[in-house]
Amino acid sequence: MLLYNKQKRNQKLKTTKRFLVSINVLGSAGPIRFVVKEDETVANVIDYALKCYAREGRLPLLGSDSSFFLLYCPYYASQAFDPWGNIGSTGSRNFVLSKKLETQNLEDSVMTTTAIWRLKAWLNKSLGLMVPSH
Rank of each mutant, 00 (worst) to 15 (best):
R93S: 11
L62R: 05
V25M: 00
V96T: 03
K125R: 13
Y76W: 09
F68A: 10
D65Y: 01
I116R: 14
V42M: 01
L3S: 09
P60F: 04
L123Y: 10
G27F: 03
K8H: 07
T15A: 14
D65K: 06
S67R: 15
Q79R: 13
L62T: 03
F81D: 00
M130E: 13
K17S: 11
L97I: 01
I116E: 15
I116S: 10
Q104D: 12
R55G: 06
T15S: 12
F69D: 01
I116A: 12
I32C: 05
H134I: 10
P83E: 08
E38P: 01
T41H: 03
L101M: 09
Q7I: 08
V25E: 02
K8L: 13
L101D: 09
K12A: 08
Q7S: 06
A80M: 00
E38R: 09
M130H: 13
L20I: 06
T112C: 08
A54T: 12
L101C: 06
F34S: 03
N105I: 07
D47N: 13
R18A: 06
T41A: 05
E102G: 05
I23G: 02
K99Y: 00
S22Q: 15
L106A: 14
W84L: 13
S22C: 13
K8D: 06
F34K: 04
A77F: 07
V42Q: 01
L62G: 01
W122T: 12
I23A: 00
S109I: 11
P132T: 12
S133V: 10
E102N: 15
K37S: 13
A115H: 11
E38L: 08
Y75K: 12
Y48V: 09
V45T: 03
I87C: 01
I46R: 01
I87P: 00
F95V: 05
Y72T: 00
L127P: 02
S78R: 12
K51M: 06
Q11E: 15
R55A: 15
T113D: 14
T16F: 08
K6E: 10
V25T: 04
L62Q: 03
S64K: 12
N124S: 15
N86M: 11
K17E: 12
V110Y: 11
L20H: 11
A121I: 02
S89E: 14
N86S: 14
L20E: 12
V96S: 04
N24V: 04
S133T: 10
I87Y: 02
Y53D: 03
K12G: 05
L50K: 02
I87N: 01
T90A: 05
L70W: 00
D82T: 09
R118A: 14
Y4N: 08
S126M: 13
N94F: 11
F68M: 11
Q104H: 10
I32Y: 00
T16I: 09
R33Y: 05
S98N: 08
M130S: 14
S64T: 13
R58C: 10
G27S: 05
N86C: 10
R118V: 06
V36Y: 00
A43P: 01
S67T: 15
F81M: 03
W84K: 12
W122N: 09
Q11L: 12
A77R: 07
S66G: 02
D39W: 07
S28F: 04
E107R: 11
L129N: 09
L62V: 02
V25P: 01
F34R: 04
S66D: 05
D108Q: 14
